[in-house]
Computed example of a mutant assay.
Amino acid sequence: MRFVSLFALPLAMVAAQPALAKGCIRDAVAGGVAGHLVGKGHGKMGAVAGCIAAHQHYAKQTKAQATAARR
């Protein structure tokens, strides 16, 4: 049950936000490779983490650009 909640919560958080796929694919691949090198079965977890990290990065960058454009 805990395994399901590890994926359900981040998936719900990402689904609630607008999709910013700008770097998600690239960082998901990088995270998947890194997870694969860490150990067996960690590739998918690394891909999810990479996509979420890219989503947060580009959301922060977009917010900063919008703030700078108002000034």
Rank of each mutant, 00 (worst) to 15 (best):
A59Q: 07
M1K: 04
G35Q: 03
A47F: 02
R71C: 07
C51E: 06
A53H: 06
R2A: 02
H55L: 09
K60G: 04
A64M: 03
V38P: 03
I25G: 07
A53Q: 01
A8Q: 02
V29W: 15
L6K: 12
R70W: 05
G32V: 02
G35A: 13
V14R: 11
Q65T: 09
V33C: 06
A54I: 12
A21T: 14
Y58G: 00
L6W: 11
M45S: 10
L6V: 10
I52E: 01
C51F: 07
V29N: 08
A66T: 07
A21Q: 01
H55W: 05
A66K: 05
L11I: 08
A66V: 02
L37Y: 15
C51N: 01
G50T: 09
K63D: 11
I25A: 14
G31V: 12
H55I: 02
R71T: 01
P10R: 11
A15N: 06
L9D: 02
G46P: 09
H36E: 08
G41S: 04
A69N: 05
V38M: 06
T62L: 13
K60Y: 07
V4Q: 05
A16W: 13
P18Q: 12
A34Y: 11
L37V: 15
A16S: 14
M13V: 15
K40H: 06
H57K: 04
A54H: 09
F7N: 04
H57V: 05
K44R: 13
L9S: 07
A69V: 06
C24G: 09
R2H: 01
V48S: 01
A68L: 12
R26D: 03
G39R: 00
